[in-house]
């Protein structure tokens, strides 16, 4: 009996680790970013576009905008394709086709970021630089927001598809069958029953994909150009927050405030991601419980 209690206690203590970890990540990053806030006010740092660490100017606005541009581009490209793919898998595909499709999507989900980045350099950069940019009458090196958006879209596609398939498959079969029995076509079943029932769930799946896109690092920094200027079009280079961190963190220069500025960038990124990720996740959890 005593032994049993001891094991319970150990397991209980281990289960507190995720809580401690989550809190300590926020606290540590915030305390390390704090020194900069005593030098300048938060809004000046967030909304100033001047990034000149040597002169003590740490405006994060270009990086924040870069992150948003790239993410939104990826989202717009990925969401429709993912939803259509998910509908096909959940409501149209035969059992045998599903057996092929699901592993393919899973493999796509499992490929490392750096592989996508390499693929982007090999194919998407020339495609955008040589063909798409001239098509729109502008010049681009190919290392730009659109390229990063395309690469990122492919990367978040599996997340959105997998979660959407789960949501769509949860729609009760008898509802669909009833509609089919009344003479509805498959499209009508999807439109008026499946999507009507699962629209918030599919939206949550998309938001979850969006939150993944915010934090994606290597693949994006390999193709986005990394120029700390406010982006003006899809064909201009950008410098998202994760790339800023990846390129500059670790080699701390002895510039006052520089280290804190990078930590603040991490905090900003963390908050951007967590808000979306948590909102989507909590909604999906609730949905799951309703199904159980």
């Amino acid at each position: 009996m005593k032994k049993e209690k001891g094991k319970e206690l150990v397991a209980g203590l281990f289960s507190l680790l995720p809580i401690i970890l989550a809190i300590s990540i926020f606290l540590l990053l915030l305390t390390k970013a704090f020194p900069l806030l005593s030098l300048k006010s938060l809004p000046t740092i967030l909304f100033s576009s001047a990034w000149q660490p040597q002169k003590g100017q740490f405006g994060l606005w270009p990086f924040i905008l870069g992150t948003i541009w790239v993410t939104i581009t990826a989202f717009i490209l990925a969401a429709p394709l993912s939803i259509l793919t998910a509908i096909y898998i959940s409501d149209y595909a035969s059992g045998r086709l599903k057996k092929w499709l699901v592993p393919v999507i899973d493999l796509l989900a499992g490929l490392p970021s750096v592989i996508y980045g390499m693929w982007g350099i090999l194919l998407i950069v020339p495609l955008v630089g040589k063909y798409l940019a001239p098509l729109f009458g502008t010049y681009s090196s190919g290392y730009c927001i659109l390229t990063a958006g395309i690469v990122l879209a492919v990367m978040i596609l599996p997340t959105i598809v997998n979660v959407s398939v789960e949501v769509l498959s949860a729609v009760p079969a008898d509802l669909k069958e009833a509609a089919l029995a009344l003479g509805a076509t498959r499209l009508e079943v999807v439109r008026f029953i499946v999507l009507k029932k699962s629209r918030p769930g599919v939206a949550a799946a998309c938001v979850l994909g969006l939150s993944r896109a915010f934090g994606e690092t290597l693949a994006v920094m390999m193709v986005v150009g990394n120029v700390p200027l406010t982006p003006t079009s899809l064909f201009s280079p950008a410098y998202p927050l994760p790339a800023l961190l990846a390129n500059n963190y670790g080699e701390m220069l002895s510039i006052p405030g520089y280290e804190a500025a990078l930590n603040l960038a991490a905090v900003v990124l963390l908050f951007m991601v967590i808000i979306f990720s948590l909102a989507a996740r909590l909604y999906l959890n609730k949905l799951e419980q309703r199904i159980d």
């Binding site: 995720p18 809580i19 970890l21 989550a22 809190i23 990540i25 540590l28 990053l29 390390k32 939150s211 915010f214 934090g215 994606e216 690092t217 994760p242 961190l245 990846a246 963190y249 670790g250 990078l262 930590n263 991490a266 990124l269 963390l270 991601v273 967590i274 979306f276 990720s277 948590l278 996740r281 909590l282 959890n285």
Partner: peptide
């Protein structure tokens, strides 16, 4: 907290690990 941790990007884990 596990959901929060799930959402944190790996680059931020890298920063945390470095600190």
């Amino acid at each position: 907290s596990l959901d929060v941790l799930w959402g944190i990007p790996s680059i931020v884990y890298g920063v945390f690990g470095f600190l």
